[in-house]
Computed example of a mutant assay.
Amino acid sequence: MTTLAVNKPRVYEGSRTAIEYSALPVIAADIIYEGAAVGSVDATGHGRPLVAGDRFAGFANAQADNSAGAAAAINVDLRTFGMIVLPVTGAVITDRGLPVYASDDDTFSFSPVGGSFVGFVHRFISAGIVLVEFDADGLRDPYAGFTHVLKSANYAVDATDTGKWLWVDTDAVVITLPAVEGINFVRIGNLGSFGTVGVAISPNAADMIEGPGIAAADNKDLINTKATARRGDWAEIAQGDANGWSARVFGTWAREA
């Protein structure tokens, strides 16, 4: 990823009273350009062009050139609250309400894998362009508390995946579970836009996946059906009983026929 090298004025919506301003001391020897997503450095609290994993602090309202200065020599003027037009990778009309993440100061997507939470899609504008509601101090990442990992090919879950959220962005990927009690719990999520990515969770041959509305049977996959799958659908697989795994789901999931 490459941070901004010039100012990039953004388009905001809403009245001036619906925008909150703040300021943050800038790290040493760097420039934050207008329009940049600004991150807060965990160790110092200083602002910088956002680096994946930073806490999002807002959008730079004007350029802050501290290229020749020590840390905190100047402040960056921030918009911390409002609605902003952003390019978000893969955004389509069905993505309203989904969380948006930044992987640098000018790259935005729906993937929490290595990203910093920015806000939520308020309105679709055009392919890849959406209006995002942001509130650096008030909104919280709905996917916080997990280690997020991207899976684009078939994958066998093991003990090191306990507590992780595995995100699938490729159609027909199969996530294979170990024998029951091989993990405590894991979540599998769908990152594909509506109707583009089907995900299957496959148990051990001697195990079932039991859950709400599921007629469980040994060696039958739990499937996020492609035709009705939405970005953000997920299934949480946890320890169950002698029959196999227990599942909690969000979205449309069905047992393999």
Rank of each mutant, 00 (worst) to 15 (best):
M1F: 12
T2V: 11
T2A: 11
L4H: 07
A5F: 07
A5C: 02
P9T: 11
R10S: 03
V11R: 12
Y12V: 10
S22W: 05
S22K: 02
A23H: 06
L24F: 01
A28N: 06
A28D: 11
D30K: 14
Y33W: 14
E34V: 10
G35E: 02
V41C: 03
D42T: 12
D42C: 00
T44V: 04
G45I: 03
G45E: 09
G47M: 04
L50R: 01
V51S: 03
V51R: 05
A52R: 02
A52I: 00
R55S: 14
F56K: 00
A57D: 01
F59Q: 02
A60S: 10
A60M: 08
Q63I: 13
D65W: 03
N66I: 05
N66R: 06
A70P: 04
A70N: 14
A71V: 11
A72C: 06
P87L: 01
P87R: 07
A91S: 12
I93E: 06
G97C: 04
P99T: 15
V100H: 03
A102R: 11
A102T: 11
D105Q: 04
T107V: 13
T107Y: 09
S109N: 05
F110T: 00
P112V: 13
S116T: 03
S116F: 04
F117W: 10
V118D: 06
F120P: 00
G128H: 00
I129D: 01
L131P: 00
V132C: 04
E133T: 11
F134M: 05
D137T: 05
D137S: 08
G138T: 08
R140L: 09
R140I: 12
D141L: 06
Y143S: 10
V149Q: 08
L150V: 11
L150G: 09
K151Q: 15
K151F: 04
Y155P: 02
A156L: 12
A156N: 13
V157K: 10
A159L: 03
T160S: 15
L166Y: 12
D169M: 01
T170Y: 07
V174S: 14
E181R: 14
G182Y: 12
I183P: 10
V186R: 12
L191A: 13
S193I: 05
G195V: 11
V197D: 10
V199W: 13
A200F: 04
I201H: 09
I201D: 09
P203R: 15
N204T: 09
M208R: 12
I209A: 09
I209R: 13
A216N: 08
A217S: 08
D218L: 02
L222N: 00
N224I: 03
K226I: 08
K226Q: 15
A227M: 00
T228F: 00
A229M: 03
R230F: 08
R231E: 01
G232H: 11
G232C: 12
D233M: 07
D233T: 05
A235Q: 09
A235R: 08
I237C: 12
A238G: 14
A238H: 09
Q239D: 14
Q239K: 14
G240S: 09
G240L: 11
V249L: 15
V249S: 10
G251L: 07
G251R: 13
W253H: 13
W253E: 14
A254G: 05
